[in-house]
Design a protein around this nucleic acid. Structure first.
Lengths: 182, 182
DNA sequence: CTCAAAATAGAGCGTATACTCAAAAACAGC
DNA sequence: GCTGTTTTTGAGTATACGCTCTATTTTGAG
């Protein structure tokens, strides 16, 4: 483990490199050699700081998943618009982590059972909070608002996909239309 | 290329094997060795019939997509509902291929250049046909129907994402609601 | 300044994978 | 049956990858 400053700095460089590669070239392209070259580190140093390549990758993925997590202190208070805005802001503001999150969720590195569960539970949390906000604002039934929330979130995720594919795509105003046409 | 019966039969066995592996163990697990073992074929025979492992995979992907096409031979006949149904059927019937599709959309996940191109051009075709169907049915302008098609497809991709995350998610009826609320 | 701990370098190992090739066997038209 | 073509075999090649190990340098507390 790293105890001196140089070790901690190298560790950061490695994680930066891994994060960059995951977002740009995907899981397959994130080879050890690529990580090492970009971080300007030899394999010996890497394995002095990490037990395996996967450990570095999982560290980054965990970070990405946490970044999608809605803030827990606002439960029961947020509006639909706030939640949608927060999501869009995450996607457009942190495209690197957003890409990693979506890639991971779709099936890349999800051989890790615990991570898969975390992604699902984050998704669940988001649906529930959206449904609550919808019920508070429109007064629809519990079941119906949940269905609406699922549809809305699916739409947002779809928009995110589209935006990642085409950065010129106007995700913000599409999101507005999506909320309006609900 | 195969000209005698035995050649055609081994070709079929290889494609069956590839299809089975893609569905069961995913893209990563579909190694050449696995294909060969399941098809009871040695590598020499394989390369007598295919130029590469990717060609076999590509063939399977193409067949899966075509199998679900409502009007494979003629463009300009399908309805919006038909195209949406075909999409849902593709996603739920071939979850592995659906994953490949979405991973490619997120970008970079596909190391295979030809496969990525194939998937993306398929995406383009689908947008165009959806837009055409929308214009035929609603009489909207060319530009507007294309935007609508992109939004609709984004929604469908979002639903697919949700379904891949949670297989219990009722993607079919959600898709119906999505089309209805357009 | 000293010295044990930490950090680094980089040659090299083991393994998995896609793919090649020359020779042998099976095939089918004559 | 003869003969050219197709099919099959399987040992062998090339490469990429994750990872190890030892020697060397750097660090920083006392």
């Amino acid at each position: 483990m790293a105890r001196y400053l140089p070790g901690l700095q190298t560790r950061d460089r490695i994680l930066d490199s891994t994060r960059w590669l995951l977002a740009r070239v995907g899981l397959d392209g994130t080879t050890l050699a690529a990580i090492l070259e970009r971080a300007k580190v030899r394999s010996g140093s890497f394995y002095n700081l990490f037990d395996s390549k996967d450990e570095a990758i999982l560290t980054v993925v965990r970070e990405a998943i946490n970044a999608v997590d809605p803030h827990p202190d606002g439960i029961g208070k947020d509006t639909v618009q706030e939640l949608v805005d927060a999501y869009i802001q995450f996607i457009t503001g942190q495209p690197t982590l957003a890409k990693i999150y979506l890639q991971t969720a779709v099936g890349g590195a999800m051989h890790d059972e615990a991570l898969a569960h975390r992604v699902l539970s984050h998704h669940e949390t988001r649906v529930t909070r959206l449904a609550d906000a919808l019920r508070r604002e429109t007064g629809t039934s519990k079941a119906k608002s949940r269905t609406q929330a699922e549809l809305l979130l699916a739409g947002l995720n779809g928009l995110a996909f589209h935006w990642l594919l085409d950065p010129d795509f106007d995700i913000s105003s599409r999101a507005v239309e999506l909320v309006a046409g609900r």
